[in-house]
Amino acid sequence: MTEVSSQDPRLQDSMPAGAEAAASGFTQQQIEALFINAAREGDAELLASFLEAGMDPNLRAEKGYTPLILAAYNGNIDAVSALLKGGAKPDLQDEKGATALAGVAFKGNLPIARLLLEAGAGVDVPNSVGRTPLMFAVMFGRDDMAKLLLKAGACPTRRDGEGLNAQDLARRQGNTVLAGLMKQETRAAS
């Protein structure tokens, strides 16, 4: 067990930051790693402590992941809530252009998707190949998620880098019900 993992910042009077970090035995890199791990593991109480002490809620980890992306992807709704309350930006993208909403659309986590949408997450933010959260929901058979995203204003005719849209993807998978629903949504918007 490392020195960092055996110490618990919650036991200290205040979380170290900057120059105080070195004085307390933690490096800034170790503090950031603890913060990122708290997001990944869903420790909302520890996240709140870090945020209250001034930690950047939009810190970037490996592959450009933010604490919000990690908490959302791992299904940690309390951590997502704490991060959003602490100022996390819902539309920050990782190195591949994925947002927190794209991750939960892929996984089908409706409560977290609702929370992100309520916090202003962009419903049609594309990744680096042009795929939107709606496209991920369709591709992975998350019909309820697709319906939620459509109600939130997702565009079923937006095309990705391959020239496909969510309707095309639904038809390709034989999901005629969802393809029909998207076709109705498109007509209603016209």
Rank of each mutant, 00 (worst) to 15 (best):
G141Q: 01
A170R: 03
A102F: 05
T66S: 13
E185M: 12
R172E: 12
G87L: 04
D78E: 15
G130K: 10
Q7M: 14
Y65N: 13
D78C: 00
M1F: 11
D168S: 10
E162P: 00
N58F: 10
A71P: 10
E62W: 09
R60K: 15
R114D: 11
F106N: 12
S81I: 01
Q29Y: 13
A170H: 01
G25R: 05
S6V: 07
V138A: 14
G97L: 13
K147I: 09
A105P: 06
V125N: 13
N58S: 13
F35Y: 10
A100I: 01
Q7P: 02
A38T: 08
L117M: 03
M182F: 05
A39F: 06
L46D: 02
D160Y: 11
L47N: 01
K107T: 11
L149K: 01
F35I: 13
E162G: 08
A189L: 11
E32C: 00
A53Q: 14
G153R: 03
T99F: 05
A98S: 10
E62R: 07
L110Y: 00
P126H: 08
P133G: 09
D144A: 15
L169N: 00
I77L: 15
N37P: 00
A166G: 11
G180T: 08
E62C: 05
G97C: 10
G54L: 02
E95H: 08
N109I: 10
V4R: 14
M1L: 09
K107G: 13
V129C: 00
N109W: 05
R187S: 11
V80F: 03
K147S: 07
V177D: 04
L47I: 08
N37G: 14
